[in-house]
């Protein structure tokens, strides 16, 4: 037990390298704050385009969405970061990570919004238009608020996943939390920084993960009662 504590929870050895963790936390948060709104916005736009598109375009868009969902995010990042320079396009690590995460999550978010939009009865749109709403206005004032309510659980769960995905940044030399912890661990020959990162993520994300499971439980119950 003592050995376990000195190895994995050695606070005194953590002190000299703690600045690395703070810097990592800052980058992780920064990445999330930049990537999350972008991904949601892109996903929503794709879903709206889908809902206004014709039949053939829809089928094509569905394949694109599925391709994005089938693509491992790390593969996307490596493609962007290591192969685009061969074409003369060089992105910095930070923007490459944001681009990869946004592209990947656009697939997820657009699928969530698309399914949400599809679950709203057509009569809602017809009723709104009968009341004199323009199609776009009806979409924003009447359809979307309902979609947001219905899709709350998957939206929250996917946002949480996105924040967790920012950890891939470490693989292209952006010192976010995990990369910083690895550096710290190499400096002090002790895995305490790794445990610390686990704890930081837990403290940071647990409230959200709790919220997600509550929303999911509600959604599943709703399906049974129907």
């Amino acid at each position: 037990m003592h050995l376990f504590l000195t190895n994995f929870f050695n606070i005194s050895s953590l002190m000299p390298v703690q600045y690395l963790l703070w810097q990592g936390l800052r980058l992780t948060l920064l990445l999330s704050v930049v990537a999350l709104p972008l991904a949601i916005l892109c996903g929503l736009s794709v879903a709206l385009l889908y809902s206004f598109a014709g039949k053939r375009v829809r089928r094509f868009m569905l394949v694109l969405i599925d391709l994005m969902r089938a693509f491992p995010v790390l593969m996307m990042l490596i493609l962007i970061y290591y192969s685009l320079p061969f074409l003369g396009i060089t992105l910095g690590g930070f923007s490459a990570v944001v681009a990869a995460i946004v592209l990947n999550n656009t697939g997820y978010f657009s699928e969530i919004f698309r399914a949400g939009l599809e679950s709203i009865p057509v009569s809602q749109m017809e009723a709104a238009q009968a009341l004199g709403f323009h199609r776009t206005k009806a979409m924003f004032y009447i359809i979307l608020p309902q979609v947001l309510r219905r899709a709350a659980a998957p939206l929250a769960s996917n946002s949480l996943e996105l924040v967790k995905t920012t950890s891939i940044a470490g693989l292209v030399a952006i010192p976010e939390l995990i990369r910083s912890a690895e550096i710290a661990q190499e400096q002090i020959y002790n895995p305490t920084p790794l445990s610390a990162v686990g704890i930081i993520f837990f403290v940071l994300l647990w409230p959200f993960s709790h919220l997600v499971s509550r929303l999911e439980r509600g959604a599943l119950r709703g399906r049974v009662d129907l």
């Binding site: 190895n7 967790k164 950890s167 445990s195 993520f201």
Partner: peptide, 23 residues
């Protein structure tokens, strides 16, 4: 469940590969 749902997969992987050898 709470622990492994909140940790990024990469954190778990790195911990197992680089952390566990200390134990």
């Amino acid at each position: 469940i709470e622990i492994f749902r909140t940790m990024p997969q990469l954190v778990v992987l790195i911990f197992i590969y680089f952390g566990l050898p200390y134990a």
